[in-house]
């Protein structure tokens, strides 16, 4: 007997990832449809105050595992705690964000509790008695709908695929005390660049490709700054060493679905399209009118990006005043 919908959140130093609110919001919608309560889990150290935020998105109960040794993410410790929560709560479905950490966690959790997993899902629904998830495959060229058999199905949700909704209501915080066990993978060093916007969660992404002609991304960075956007790059720009691998948008890089994607000097190789074609609005600036990116874009500008992009930046700055 299913007793709830279960959402797993992700935070770094007390700041929730946006996709956690997406997972909780989607959990709320599913819970309302099925008349079940929504239970959200928060794991970390010194995150009690931050955890309350999940109540704003409709969590009825917030399970909090707060211990000093949980300050850094540990797959094994998280799985041990969550497997125990899931055993007690008997959820109908488990949701979490398909971030780097979420994917890592989902795979191990799925194997540990012998539950079916839909990785990087763009949606999940109950069809009669069956849970059905949609997931893009082959670089987004195909959407596969898969049936998840067995309990409880786990869906790792692709960032920016589902809507965030705030919801009024009471939520109750419950502290849980599960021994996380020995930490097998020790974090010995961590470099955090604060203020950098995570590509996969950004509302706006401005990317530069081969047309940048070199590692000077000033024009792209200036537009990104004016728009509050993250900076991305095509594979050829990364292969040239102009940008770090972490900035690569594409099949072998990040998959992004922002509200607005601005491609500057990117021809639109399939490799790149696979990483950004689900963006809501795509603008391409390229000097080649035949560039394949224009087939995928909503709006195209043929011209020199070094002339066009700074003009957009200027106007965007005026708007933001």
């Amino acid at each position: 007997m299913s007793a709830c919908i279960f959402a797993i959140s992700e935070q770094i130093e007390g700041a929730f990832r946006k996709v956690s609110f997406e997972a909780v919001s989607e959990g709320r919608r599913l819970a309302d449809g099925l008349g079940l309560p929504l239970v959200a889990a928060v794991i970390g150290s010194g995150v009690e105050e931050a955890a309350e935020a999940l109540g704003r998105y409709g969590a009825d109960r917030i399970l909090l595992a707060d211990r000093p040794e949980l300050a850094d993410y540990s797959t094994e410790a998280y799985v041990r705690i969550l497997a125990e929560c899931i055993r007690q709560e008997q959820p109908s479905v488990v949701l979490l964000g398909a971030t780097a950490q979420g994917k890592d966690l989902a795979a191990r959790l799925s194997a540990r509790i012998d539950a079916p997993l839909a990785m990087d899902a763009t949606g999940i629904r109950l069809d009669g008695e069956q849970w059905v998830a949609a997931r893009p495959m082959y670089g987004g060229k195909i959407i596969a709908e898969v049936i998840l058999e067995g309990n409880p199905p786990i869906a790792a949700l692709r960032p920016n695929a589902l809507r965030i909704e705030e919801k009024e209501g009471e939520s109750r915080m419950e502290k849980i005390d599960v021994d996380p066990g020995p930490i097998q993978v020790k974090t010995v060093d961590k470099t955090l660049e604060t203020g950098k916007i995570e590509l996969t969660e950004a509302d706006i992404v401005v990317s530069g490709g081969r047309g940048m002609g070199g590692s000077d991304y000033t024009v792209v960075e200036a537009l990104a700054e004016a728009l509050g956007a993250a900076v991305g790059a095509s594979r050829s720009a990364v292969d040239e060493g102009w940008r770090p691998h972490a900035d690569q948008v594409g099949q072998t890089g990040k998959v992004v679905s922002p509200n607005l994607y601005i491609a500057c000097g990117i021809s639109g190789a399939i490799q790149h399209l696979a990483g950004m074609s689900t963006s809501k609005v795509i603008v391409a600036v390229n000097k080649d009118p035949e560039a394949p990116i224009f087939a995928k874009a909503d709006y195209g500008v043929v011209g020199d990006l070094f002339e066009i992009v700074p003009l957009i930046t200027e106007e965007a700055k005026k708007l933001r005043g």
């Binding site: 770094i12 990832r17 971030t99 780097a100 950490q101 993978v185 020790k186 974090t187 010995v188 060093d189 961590k190 470099t191 955090l192 660049e193 950098k196 916007i197 995570e198 590509l199 770090p244 691998h245 972490a246 900035d247």
Partner: peptide
């Protein structure tokens, strides 16, 4: 690689 293009070293 962890979130936000950040880097972590593990043992």
């Amino acid at each position: 690689e962890i979130a936000g293009g950040n880097q972590e070293m593990n043992e």
